[in-house]
Amino acid sequence: MQSVEIYTSPLCGFCHAAKRLLNEKGVAYSEIDVLRNPDRKPEMIQRASGGRTVPQIFVGDIHVGGCDDLYALERAGKLDALLTE
């Protein structure tokens, strides 16, 4: 299983929705709260090619994008394959 990292903020509904999907699938992930750790936000922006909103989701070295992107992969039946590459 690929490592999953998700940059979040506790007040972000999209962050909660993305984590809910990952939890439902039984996927372990590392969560980086950029509100509590603002020094990590520049890292997120660089890794996400300029993406400043949360969540920013990474599966291995692949930048998935945000919550809508994660759910789009799930609807297309591609998320499981990405997680197990």
Rank of each mutant, 00 (worst) to 15 (best):
M1D: 03
Q2R: 07
S3G: 12
V4M: 09
Y7S: 10
P10G: 13
L11I: 15
L11F: 14
C12W: 06
G13C: 07
G13R: 10
C15P: 03
K19G: 05
L21W: 02
L22A: 10
E24Y: 06
E24Q: 15
E24N: 12
G26H: 11
A28P: 06
Y29F: 15
S30Q: 15
S30N: 11
E31S: 15
E31T: 10
E31D: 13
I32T: 12
L35T: 15
L35R: 12
R36V: 08
R40T: 09
R40N: 05
K41A: 04
E43M: 01
M44K: 01
S49E: 12
G50E: 02
G51R: 01
R52Y: 02
T53C: 00
V54F: 07
F58I: 04
F58M: 11
G60L: 13
G60E: 12
D61A: 07
D61Y: 03
I62F: 14
H63Y: 12
H63D: 14
H63W: 11
H63K: 12
V64N: 05
D68M: 03
D69Y: 03
L70W: 06
A72L: 14
A72Q: 13
L73F: 06
K78G: 09
L79Q: 02
L83N: 06
L83E: 09
T84V: 10
T84A: 14
T84C: 07
